[in-house]
Design a binder for these strands. Structure first.
Lengths: 158, 158
DNA sequence: GGTAAGTGCTTGCCTGCGCAAGTATTCTGG
DNA sequence: CCAGAATACTTGCGCAGGCAAGCACTTACC
């Protein structure tokens, strides 16, 4: 029994409903607000910001497209176009992988790192203001563990 | 200095980074997976499902467009087109408000309720499987409170 | 009562994003 | 060494969703 659609699931109780409704609203509202802020201050998307962060932390400031995609949780096609956008702005360059010439590797350029550093303070403030400041009573480790499990489950079911 | 981006914020510590990264990935991945599931099983969007739920719980199974929009966290224009879609499927009808004839009121029809009830079991199972099942160690009330605060803060800053 | 400002929905247009199909390259069995 | 399967990206296309401008109606003020 995979549980895909088959098994009867117990309905959510009141606590669960409250948590789920709050979570599902946050899924819509939080990214919108953060993205609007980032777009206004730094002319970049939330996805673009996250990709720049991943690249800045990667060895040689470079990473394969497919890794970037799965790390941020975007589709491969989205990543192609996202990287194209960053390339047009001169923030990253793309080169074919020498060993596996199917693959492409995105490399963060100096200008991209500068853009990321310029965007960082305002975005950090927005994340604190919109998200972290409200997590006061929450056990961060338990929350992180739970969210990681969700995301892993989802990637697994692909 | 607006204060919007002004103040220096303390960088996130390791715990916060972990929680934030997990949260931001979940913002991308969770809605995608749930929506794909809902679309496949019931041919409706997550937003459409949520609107149907709101309507089914509302007095007279009807609600003003603007209320629906703010309850689910979507923009007014999105709500117009979403309701149009539901109307085309015969699930909802729209009538002008008698008292304030600027306003429009969406009314859930029997067919819409039936569609919602048909979609419910599979969606419930998906929500349990993808989300609720992973929240075991988490204090649901604290989490709900935190998420509600986030969303309220965001709506407020409009 | 009539004009000005405000409110509530709709429309035009643009962007983000995924899916399905296509292309290029690598791997695998004969 | 060569077909066929598998992999890694790209491209075509369609839908979700926001913003800005528009239209309809109401409220406020003279």
């Amino acid at each position: 029994m995979t549980g895909q659609a088959g098994g009867e699931s117990r309905p959510l109780d009141d606590r669960e409903i409250r948590a789920w409704k709050a979570f599902s609203r946050s899924l819509i509202v939080v990214p919108r607000v953060l993205e609007a802020d980032l777009l206004q201050h730094s002319s970049m998307t939330l996805g673009e910001y996250q990709v720049l962060v991943m690249l800045s932390e990667a060895p040689d400031r470079s990473s394969r497209m497919s890794e970037l995609a799965s790390d941020v949780g975007l589709s491969a096609s989205r990543m192609t176009r996202l990287i194209d956008g960053l390339r047009r702005r001169g923030w990253v360059e793309k080169k074919r992988d020498g060993c596996d010439r199917r693959g492409a590797i995105a490399v963060l350029r100096q200008e991209g790192l500068a853009a990321l550093e310029a965007a960082y303070p305002a975005h950090l403030a927005a994340v604190r203001r919109q998200v972290m400041d409200h997590l006061g009573d929450t056990d961060l480790d338990a929350l992180a563990t739970a969210l990681e499990a969700m995301v892993d489950r989802s990637s697994a079911s692909t």
